[in-house]
């Protein structure tokens, strides 16, 4: 059976460092490796959303037939007979460079520094620009992928290109489409988005979004932004009045 005929998700075997492993046809190689218990570093991967290959940390060496090459494993599909090597000198060398680049891009991120240190990279030879000094964002786009694919709010997206690329709300103003659910805050690998809450208002700092919170009718505790309840309610055909009590009191 040629692999074009193999249905997506069919059980197949491939090799990791010479060991036979079971996987599913066309699943994410990184997902499979993680499930099998192999350790591969990564910042921008999340099983709930599409892969993007942005952080470049999940490098592995893959071989099918005679040619072997270095690739990001998150967006590489598993196929039968694939040979994967995890920690070859070439992988180590490339990963070191990626860590150094990330350290120059987001020097203020303790998460990036900690992960780099785990792999023996403690400093970067690249110039850290003045604007980058306080930067924590590695532009992996995971927040936008979650916002689009999971939440469906589409509040944020990449803007610009090349050295001007940025992750901002449109015009870097308050993101009107943001429902303040905080999924992006939760999922951000470098915790650079920032969520603040007073009893009245939830603020998502990076998207400049302030949203009044709904108070539970029973316990009086603020439990979710009113706008979030309204938007999600509209989607499932319910009214705001159906969300008067919090989860705990329901």
């Amino acid at each position: 059976m040629s692999h074009e005929d193999t249905p997506k998700g069919a059980k197949i075997t491939f090799q990791v460092d010479g060991r036979a492993c079971e996987g599913f046809h066309h699943e994410s190689l990184l997902g499979a490796l993680r499930r099998l218990g192999f350790e591969v570093p990564s910042l921008c991967f999340h099983e709930a959303v599409s892969t993007y290959g942005a952080c470049r940390l999940c490098l592995v060496e893959v071989q099918k037939g005679r040619k072997s090459r270095i690739t990001t494993s998150c967006n590489f599909p598993v196929t039968a007979g694939l040979q994967v090597r995890l920690d070859t000198p070439a992988v180590q060398q490339n990963r070191k460079i990626v860590f150094q680049l990330l350290l120059a891009k987001a020097p203020a991120s303790p998460e990036v520094r900690a992960l780099a240190a785990e792999y023996g990279v403690h400093s970067t030879p690249y110039k850290v620009s003045e604007e980058a000094k306080d930067n924590k964002c590695i532009l992996c786009g995971l927040c936008a992928r979650v916002c689009t694919e999971v939440v469906g709010a589409n509040a944020i997206a990449f803007s610009g290109r090349g050295s001007h690329k940025d992750m901002v709300a449109p015009y870097d103003e308050a993101a009107e489409a943001c429902i303040g659910c905080g999924a992006c805050v939760e999922v951000c690998p470098t915790h650079c988005i920032g969520l603040r809450e007073t009893p009245e208002i939830r603020t998502i700092e990076k998207w400049h979004r302030d949203l009044p919170l709904q108070k539970c009718e029973k316990c009086g505790r603020p439990f979710a932004p009113t706008f979030q309840l309204m938007t999600l309610g509209k989607r499932v055909g319910m009214k705001l009045s159906d969300f008067k009590v919090c989860n705990d009191c329901r």
Binding site: N154, A157, S159
Partner: peptide
């Protein structure tokens, strides 16, 4: 800006997507 906002509303597209495209080129 106002035209892009009107465009997004009229086509029922996220403003973020229109803005991403407009800033890319």
């Amino acid at each position: 800006k106002e035209t892009l906002k009107a465009l997004a509303a009229e086509m029922n597209l996220p403003l973020a997507r229109v803005y991403a495209l407009a800033t890319f080129f």
